[in-house]
Design a protein around this nucleic acid. Structure first.
Length: 546
DNA sequence: CTGGGGAGGGGGCCC
DNA sequence: CGGGCCCCCTCCCCA
């Protein structure tokens, strides 16, 4: 007794779910485009994917081997079994590219299909041979080769470091698709193209041999068994564990997870291109607006960390160069975007306007936010906020900025004020041991590298963008750490209760809950606290007028 | 309802 | 680049 259309219907459903981002639990980064998909489907399609998705919620593909347009076709093929050839390029060229990508991704059926097509057309294969697992291991740091991906989560800290560092930030690719320009002065231009980056942001481990980052249930202590189960699940290749709630998208919000249906919230989240107001804004122009968009908006507004930055949905073909890939679906906010409507100014933007349209599996990343206010000028210079129609013009423009311009002159007063607030005796006054003095503020440092690092904080630009939400950071490490929150990577687990943390320091703090240690004592009332910050807030209570 | 404490989480920044 | 610390925001709980 067979249901004749069972497989077909199932695939159809899955593809529809993909279109909506429903239950998508993995993001694939190709150049500057993000695609959402289901781990199970990918794993069932390719051994390569299988090894990748086992431990990673974010996969960066080598752009030498596959480009976004090709990957879109591939993803469609995986979900439908149909190969829709690209209208952008001639057939054989497309099949060459597809074959390259299919070989690389170990999609043997697709590769065979492409070979067949090429053979029929009498065109030899002229693409690159994709040999991801073995032959390309030499550059596996870029590709999250299966072996490394596995090792990373097996407690091999050395390997972890190798594969984690930089991750989404070390773009080495061409500048053509830069959307958030950063000054040329900064050689570490981080705009990730996928190429040159790793697939994962699970940046640190504590040497714990637990499988990491997949269990997002903040309240895991109540379900310790489940927590452990999650770890083992990951090892045994069950992508359907708690990881689904992580990258599923776009709606990952740790606090939010406790309050709402993550999956169902996606469409709402997507529309929250901007979050509520944020203080301490030091950046001008669009960066200010952008900076405000971090995920600190109240949950009831339907915002999450990822959602702030991720617009989901395909756009028109014209935007392909911007990492947006069309499909049959209608982009939710397409009209707004194409009209150059400034969504970024409205936190509640378009929730109504955009709802009701099917969202899609193609994730339009940070560029969306930058481009929205600038109409067709998709390439935006951060320091001055000018938009340009192409990267060449933008790059030429960026060259015109001098380094001096990058400092926040008009906000000097603020900087100084803040410097006073933040300064400590150690850093405020140069001493013999701290000969490297900041030219902008009064701080001084022991070594020039630290000084340079500090001086960047005075720049208008933030060279390190998050590839998920586009938020900009002054330091790569901060961005990497931030990415962890998107990906739900919580490598540090409490042995007592199973609670997981993104940082070692948090775990250290947390452990005091179990030990009862309260090292911070109020000198006024003798009250003791487990965390210094709570002592500080307690002290405010003493000192406040009320 | 409110204030205070506990605690989770994020970003900035220095080492 | 990671660790560590600081600051802030936020939520939850409880008195």
């Amino acid at each position: 007794m067979d249901l004749p259309n069972h497989a077909k219907q199932l695939l159809l459903q899955l593809n529809q779910q993909r279109a909506k981002g429903f239950l998508c639990d993995v993001i694939i980064v190709v150049e500057n485009a993000l695609f959402r998909a289901h781990k199970n489907i990918l794993a069932a399609s390719s051994m390569y994917f299988k090894s990748l998705v086992l431990h990673d919620n974010l996969i960066n593909l080598d752009t030498d081997m596959v480009n976004p347009s090709i990957f879109r076709q591939i993803l469609d093929f995986i979900y439908t079994g149909k190969l829709l050839t690209s209208a952008d390029q001639p057939g054989e060229q497309n099949f060459n590219a597809l074959l390259t990508a299919a070989s690389y991704l170990q999609l043997h059926d697709l590769a065979a299909l492409c070979r067949k097509k090429l053979k029929r057309a009498g065109k030899p294969f002229v693409g690159k041979l994709g040999v991801p697992s073995i032959g390309r291991m030499g550059r596996s740091h870029r590709l999250s080769a299966p072996t490394l991906a596995h090792m990373r989560f097996s407690g091999s800290t050395d390997c972890t470091k190798e594969t984690h560092s930089n991750d989404l930030s070390k773009g080495t690719g061409p500048e053509e698709e830069v959307f958030l320009s950063t000054p040329k002065q900064d050689n570490s231009h981080p705009l990730n193209r996928g190429t040159g980056s790793n697939n994962s942001l699970n940046n640190s481990t504590n040497g714990s041999d637990q499988d990491l980052g997949l269990d997002l249930s903040k309240k895991s202590p109540s379900l310790p068994g489940q927590d452990e189960g999650t770890h083992s699940d990951s090892h045994t290749g069950s992508p359907q564990s708690a990881s689904a709630s992580v990258t599923n998208c776009a709606s990952y919000d740790e606090s939010g997870l406790q309050k709402r249906d993550v999956n169902e919230s996606m469409e709402v989240d997507e529309n929250h291109c901007e979050a509520g107001p944020k203080k301490n804004l030091r950046h001008v122009s669009r960066l200010k607006d952008w900076d405000r968009s971090e995920g600190e908006k109240p949950v009831e507004e339907g915002d999450g960390t990822i959602p702030n930055g991720v617009i989901v949905g395909p756009l028109s073909k014209e935007r392909i160069s911007g990492g947006v890939y069309s499909s049959d679906q209608t982009f939710q906010c397409k009209e707004d975007m194409e009209n150059g409507k400034d969504n970024s100014e409205e936190s509640g933007h378009s929730e109504n306007e955009c709802s009701g349209h099917p969202s899609a599996n193609y994730v339009y990343r940070q560029e969306g936010f930058e481009t929205v206010p600038f109409g067709d000028n998709l390439y935006v210079c951060i320091p001055c906020g000018k938009g340009f129609p192409n990267s060449e013009q933008l790059n030429a423009h960026v060259e015109t900025h001098t380094e001096e311009e990058l400092y926040i002159k008009e906000e000097d007063s603020y900087s100084k004020e803040e410097a006073e607030d933040l300064s400590t005796p150690n850093t405020t006054f140069p001493t013999e041991s701290r000969p490297f003095k900041c030219s902008v503020c009064e701080r001084s440092y022991k070594d020039p590298a630290t000084l340079r690092q500090h001086e960047k904080t005075h720049w208008l630009t933030r060279p390190f963008p998050c590839n998920i939400c586009g938020k900009m950071f002054t330091q790569r490490g901060t961005m990497t750490r931030h990415m962890r929150s998107h990906l739900g990577l919580k490598p540090f687990a409490c042995e007592e209760c199973g609670m997981r943390f993104t940082r070692q320091y948090r775990l250290t703090e947390h452990m005091r809950v179990h030990s009862g240690e309260k090292p911070y004592e109020c000198q006024l009332c003798g009250g003791k606290f487990t965390q210094q910050r709570n002592l500080i807030s307690h002290l405010r209570m003493h000192t406040s007028p009320s």
